[in-house]
């Protein structure tokens, strides 16, 4: 190949690939609106706050960011909105172990950030992040679970609590909760958490007395 041929290959080849890339970009732009819910003023205000506090300097979103703190793409699916808002305004008040500093986020900003994160949780991301494959395989089928375990799962307790390493880090670890609490305390606590631990963010659980009994039985087996 002559020097000139190599040069022409570089120039025209690059232009060729860039044109294809541009065409795909136009096509992508056309399709994007169908892949996420409509953007409201609140969602945009949340995005502005997201940039203002340089949230991406610690967190990732859609998997891109700083890998120092949790990915927030699907956070809104895991946390109640009220909890998220309070956490944003004063993280350590809700979780003493939180590494997140108090940035002075106002309640309006917290509200719009929650709307923004709710929007991101509904983006069609080609199924990312994937469902944990081992947890799914190791999952005991419903018929093998005790009624208490089933309630623990259906009420989403593991979003905040950990049992034997599995679950969220927001609330206390429940692996040995059976050693610490008795039946009366647990039932009373489930019905009115703040009567037992003032200022806790644990929501009151609304379930029948029979179910409450089952969930408590399960808690007491954790030793």
């Amino acid at each position: 190949m002559s020097n000139k041929a190599a040069k022409n290959l570089f120039i025209y080849g690059s232009i060729f690939f860039f044109v294809i890339f541009l065409a795909l970009t136009f096509d992508t732009m056309e399709k994007l609106d169908k892949r996420a819910p409509a953007i409201t003023e609140a969602v945009n205000a949340g995005k502005m706050a997201w940039h203002k506090y340089d949230c991406i300097g610690c967190h990732t979103i859609l998997g891109n960011g700083s890998y120092f703190s949790p990915d927030l793409t699907r956070t809104a699916n895991k946390m109640p909105k009220e909890y998220l808002k309070q956490y944003l305004m004063n993280p350590k008040a809700l979780n003493q172990k939180a590494a997140m500093p108090n940035l002075g986020i106002t309640s309006e900003e917290a509200e719009s950030l929650a709307a923004f994160l709710d929007w991101t949780s509904r983006i069609n991301t080609n199924n990312w992040p994937p469902k944990p494959i081992l947890a799914k395989e190791a999952r005991i089928e419903d018929k093998d679970m005790t009624p208490g375990q089933r309630l623990y799962r259906s009420f989403g307790c593991s979003n905040c609590h950990v049992i034997k390493g599995i679950g969220g880090a927001t609330g206390p670890d429940l692996t040995r909760v059976g050693n610490k609490r008795d039946k009366a305390w647990l039932i009373g606590y489930f019905k009115d958490p703040r009567a037992y631990i003032p200022g806790t963010v644990m929501p009151a659980i609304n379930m029948s007395d029979a179910d409450m009994e089952q969930l408590t039985e399960y808690m007491l087996t954790l030793k």
Binding site: F17, F21, L32, A36, L62, G63, I123, N126, W128
Partner: peptide
Amino acid sequence: LFTGILGTGHHYYWIGT
């Protein structure tokens, strides 16, 4: 450039594209 321009696609797997 032949590989890198369209290789940008490896960042467009999971961001809603």
